[in-house]
Design a protein around this nucleic acid. Sequence first.
DNA 1: CGATAAATTGAGTTTTGTCAATAAAGGTGG
DNA 2: CCACCTTTATTGACAAAACTCAATTTATCG
Lengths: 260, 260
Amino acid sequence: MAMQLRRAATDNVIIPVSRGVGYAQPSLEVLSCNTCNIRGGCLAEQLTIAHDHSYQVVKNRKVLSKGNHIFRGGDDTKAIYVVSSGSVKSYMLMEDGEEQVLNFYMPGDVFGLDAMGSSCHISSTVALETTTVCKLPLSGLQDRALGQGFLNMISENLLRDHNLMLMLARKDADGRLASFLIDMSKRIEKLGQPVDVIKLTMTRQDIANYLGLAIETVSRALRRFQDSGMLEVTRREVAIYDFNCLLNIAGTQVTGSCSS
Amino acid sequence: MAMQLRRAATDNVIIPVSRGVGYAQPSLEVLSCNTCNIRGGCLAEQLTIAHDHSYQVVKNRKVLSKGNHIFRGGDDTKAIYVVSSGSVKSYMLMEDGEEQVLNFYMPGDVFGLDAMGSSCHISSTVALETTTVCKLPLSGLQDRALGQGFLNMISENLLRDHNLMLMLARKDADGRLASFLIDMSKRIEKLGQPVDVIKLTMTRQDIANYLGLAIETVSRALRRFQDSGMLEVTRREVAIYDFNCLLNIAGTQVTGSCSS
DNA sequence: CGATAAATTGAGTTTTGTCAATAAAGGTGG
DNA sequence: CCACCTTTATTGACAAAACTCAATTTATCG
């Protein structure tokens, strides 16, 4: 395949030092759980409070602006993270500089799990927009009962990965894009937002790198969908008109619920 | 893509009841850890003993013959499993009957993790040959400190999945097959077996369903490799002559070690 | 408002899937 | 132990999907 190099602000070969030393993190402001929108079921809160009962209010939230990395491949493992607001992509770099996007994370999602068993991160993560993340130190994690929520999260992660694998292995371009849009829709639904309008915080290139397609193929598939009238694309926003049609094109979706 | 239906003994739509009720498991023999070859670092042993200190000798091993399922998609979640001997494949069925192979498991490997957070299994698992598996009941798992070994295992699983995703998304047929062979070689190396002879316990169809290729493409890629002299294929056995060449074709491999 | 980045669109090529036929292997029963 | 049948694997010819290259348009950001 050997596509040409295509990387943007998320490049992690040439490490940006543009704003001088000390500005690696755009904001050092640390926020407490009290001001977090993710109420109930926040794993970071659960685990951190469980870990240290003296803190009822956890203060480990940080604001990142677009393009800022949370961690990069090779960085020492320190924590796992929860998205509080905004969105994040995780990716791995191939030797040719090509990046494979592994996942997009939205508010409530936990990321950085691949680091749990290793001394450093394998993947990299970067904010796709102004984003707030909550840091959950890993120290002592192995000695504690982690609770069902933790196990659920792990199997959710595995399920998501399996879904992507299935998609990459078996679906054509239209099927992959349809699956992607449905997945995004389901996720924003969980956040209580309207399901029929998807705001894409990632570039077409990111989508292509996630779905294992060329950027041109993504563009053309979106056009085909739009021409058929099932949805409308305007810049980074997709309005879905015919959900059934999209589901049809997507084919098999692996859900967490046991219906099969 | 919509390839034609291709399923064999592992079909789980038509449930085989060939040998009559009561023979769902070919053997009810239960073996103890004392007779297990996997010494040291067996997670099943660790977790089970940790769970119930009164049993120093765990008796939960079972023998399965080729084609027998350990569990099927939709089955109630009861346990996670460790391969003691033999080999296992896990797969998910698509609506068109197509199966996507998720992984092949070898002695020491843990499988069934996707069930941890769910009330039933999403994937199915089947023995590829005469296989011994160790069952690890899930009950009470969430209330216990699971140890670093458990966390390691989870991140290993995630890493393996990410590797496959990267492969499916970015590599051509030759790259995928080369990656597959290298991975198999590394895994048998861990088991203390020679790295240059790989015994394939799965069919070409299974490999194709794992790599997201047509069976013919797998066959042709193997022929190309053989013609170039880097390896030799005889039935279900691959003798590797030029490992560097294979690594070259495979391209990026994601390893657990932090070298990047 | 201009420069850079992102996205779209078209034309041509390559890879891989599909269909079809054949060969080889493995298992079963006489 | 051998013949037969089923399953598995190989090989060839053709078609389709997606990638590459190239040009253009449209956003975004300073």
